[in-house]
Each structure stands twice: as structure tokens, then as C-alpha cells.
Computed example of a mutant assay.
Amino acid sequence: MSYTYGAVKPGRSRNKAERKARLENERLLQEVERFRQRIVSATRDYADILEHREEQVKAAEARCGELAGQLERVRADLGQCNDDIGKLKGDNSMLQSRVEDAASMLTDRDTLEQTVKRQHGAIEKLDRELKVARGQVDAKNEAIAKAECAADFGGGSQIEELTLKCAGTTQLKLLFNEPWLLQTSHMRLRGDVPADREGNTLTPLPGGKQLVLMGGHSRTHDDAGRDVAALSLDSLQWERPEGARRYAGMHGHTATSISRRLVVLFGLRGEEASSSASVLAADTLRWAPAAARPPAGAAGAAAQEPTARLSHAAACVRERVYVFGGMTGDGLLLGDLWSLDTDSMQWAQHATFGAAPAPRKGAQWGACRGAR
């Protein structure tokens, strides 16, 4: 028997290849089956996961709806809270105003209590003065009774004087935030009593014991404008000083007391307004020579002096008499301010600032010391 090495029969090798291919095919089929099973399992798992996710999404959507509703409710509550805060702020402002009013009322109460305490002492003092006044009234009534008994023996003037004194009044009034007892007395004047008039001046002399009446316009006495009369406050006696009578009538003037002098300014002299200034000595009641000078002007410029006027206002501050306003003889109202230095008798015009009073006539003003 002979063998040939390195050669295989064709049928045998083909069978072997087929078996190998079948085995490989079976293996591949098994692998495919395993992959298919794994895919089916994964598909089921993914389906379960997707279903679970869908349920979670639905739950989340439902939760979002609930949260949206809660958000709307929170917004509504927030709006209500804002409204409540606004109301509370308004109430707080009202309460703050009431607290401030209460504090002001407490302050006013304390001030009122202090004022009442001060006025209590003043009222007690006034009560004592009223008792004294009642005693004086009783004394006057007794004097009147005695005077009536003596009327048949020439006591008529005494009765008249006592009657005038008893016609006075006593009133309690509040002045300058303090209680004052005001007594009004009627007295019988003696001597050459001046006639009734208007447009005159009545000025106290230094020392407070005499009043000087000057000028004026009377409907019954044409010569009243020339009068200069002095009233003694001790004896109530009118006197006509010699040499004091004016050479021409005047009214609408001013007479200011300063350093034992009466400075008489402007006024209507006869039928025309005057720009003159006169000085009456307080101790002798005689006219002193004086001539007011206009203010010094610039070089080469004419000096000016106050316009002639009447019904002006005059007041004394130290050694100066300040004059405001008045009316010219033609009826023009004035609103300028001048001052007269009574030592040098020189005029000076003043420029003022702020809201100046309107031009006027018939005004009064005075120098104020302290609070009165």
C-alpha cells in the first residue's frame, strides 16, 4: 500500500468545512438570539423607564399647576399685604400726628399752668387793689353824702367834682399776656379850658407833670390853631403861657418831646402845608430860635429837604426825630422816611429795605423799649 502525504481528498475536506461553517453558524445564531433577547429585555426595560418617566412628567406637570395656583394665591396675598401696609402707614401717620398734637397739648398745658400760676399771684394782687378801690368808692360815697348835706351852703362844685370821680370805671383786662386793672377817671378841669378841636397835638413834658396842647382846628373858635396851653396833672389846671401863642394857626402837625424840648414839625399853617421845624423850650414854654437845615448835597448839587406835609407820623429815637409819610397840600400821599438831628437841626433822608408800607396819612408810630 502506498500513501501520498500532503494531499486531502476533496470530499472529506468539504465536509469538514461545512461542519465548521455549521458550527460557526450555530454559534452566530446563538449570539444573535442572545442579542435579540438582550434587545427585547432592554426594550422592555426602556419601555418601563419611559412609562415611569411619563408618570414623573405628569406628576411634575400636576405639581407645576399646583405651584402656579399657589403662586397666584401668594401674589394675591402679597397685594393684600401691600394694601394693608399702605393702610397701616396711613394709620401710623395719623397716630404720629395725634402724638404730635398730644405733645403740643402737653406743652400748652404746661405753659398754661405756668401762666395760671403767674396770674394767680396777679389776681390776688388785683383782688387787694379791688378791695382798696371799694374802700375808695365807699369813701367817695360818704363824701358825696356829706357834700349833699352841705349843698345848701355853696357846695355845688364839690358835688360836681365828686360825681365826676365816681363816674370812673375799673376793668380787669388782659394786656401783653398779663392781667391789668384799668381805671378810667373823669376829672373836672380848671382854668382856661381849651375849646373842642381836632388835628391838635397833646404832648407830655419831661418829668411827666405837664401836658402841652398845641394847635388844632375848631368849628367854634377860628383862632384855636394858634393856641398853646399847658395842663398841670397835679392840679388839673389849664394855663396859657405868655409868649407861646403862635403867630399863625396850625393843625395836622406833630410835637415830639426830646431832651426838654418840643420839636414841632410840618402841619398846615393857614391854607398851605409847611415844611418848617420849630422848637418849644420845655422849662420856659417859649419858642427857641431854630431853623432846620437841609442835608448836605454833593459838590455842586443842590441840597434837598423834606416836602411840605401834614398828617405825618413822627417818633423820637435818642436825639433824632424820624418822620414818615403824610400828605402834601395838594392831597398827594407820601411814603418817604426822613430824620432830623435835633442837635445840629439837619435833615437826612433814609433809604429803606424790605416790604415798605404804602404811602399814607394819619398814621402813628413810636419808639419801643422792651416788649411794650
Rank of each mutant, 00 (worst) to 15 (best):
P10N: 08
R19W: 00
A21R: 14
L23I: 07
L23Y: 02
E24R: 09
L29H: 08
R34M: 04
R36F: 12
A42H: 09
T43R: 07
D48A: 12
H52M: 06
E54Q: 10
A60T: 09
E61A: 06
G65D: 14
E66L: 08
A68N: 09
G69Y: 03
G69T: 09
E72P: 01
V74F: 11
C81M: 08
N82K: 13
D84C: 04
I85D: 05
G90E: 11
G90Y: 07
N92M: 09
N92D: 05
L95N: 04
Q96V: 04
A102K: 03
S104E: 05
M105L: 15
E113N: 08
E113I: 10
R118V: 11
A122V: 07
I123Q: 04
E124S: 14
L126A: 14
R128K: 14
V132G: 10
A133C: 13
A139S: 15
N141Y: 02
N141G: 03
D152T: 12
G155L: 10
G156R: 09
G156D: 10
I159C: 04
E161A: 15
T163K: 11
G168T: 09
L174A: 12
L175E: 15
L175K: 15
W180E: 09
T184R: 06
L189G: 02
D192P: 09
R197D: 02
P204F: 07
L205N: 01
L205Y: 01
G215R: 03
G216D: 06
H217D: 11
H217I: 10
R219L: 09
R219V: 05
R226V: 13
A229E: 02
S232E: 12
D234I: 00
Q237A: 13
A244G: 07
R245H: 08
R246K: 10
Y247K: 09
A248M: 14
M250K: 06
H251P: 00
G252P: 05
G252N: 07
G252V: 10
T254A: 05
A255T: 12
A255P: 01
A255E: 01
R261F: 02
V263I: 15
G267Y: 01
R269G: 04
S275C: 14
S278P: 00
V279A: 08
A282S: 13
W287L: 08
A292F: 07
A292R: 01
A296D: 11
G297L: 08
A302H: 07
T307M: 11
S311E: 11
S311D: 12
A313Y: 12
R318M: 02
Y322S: 01
G329E: 02
S339Y: 07
M345H: 15
W347P: 08
H350E: 04
G354P: 03
R360T: 08
R360I: 06
K361P: 00
C368F: 06
R372P: 06
R372W: 06
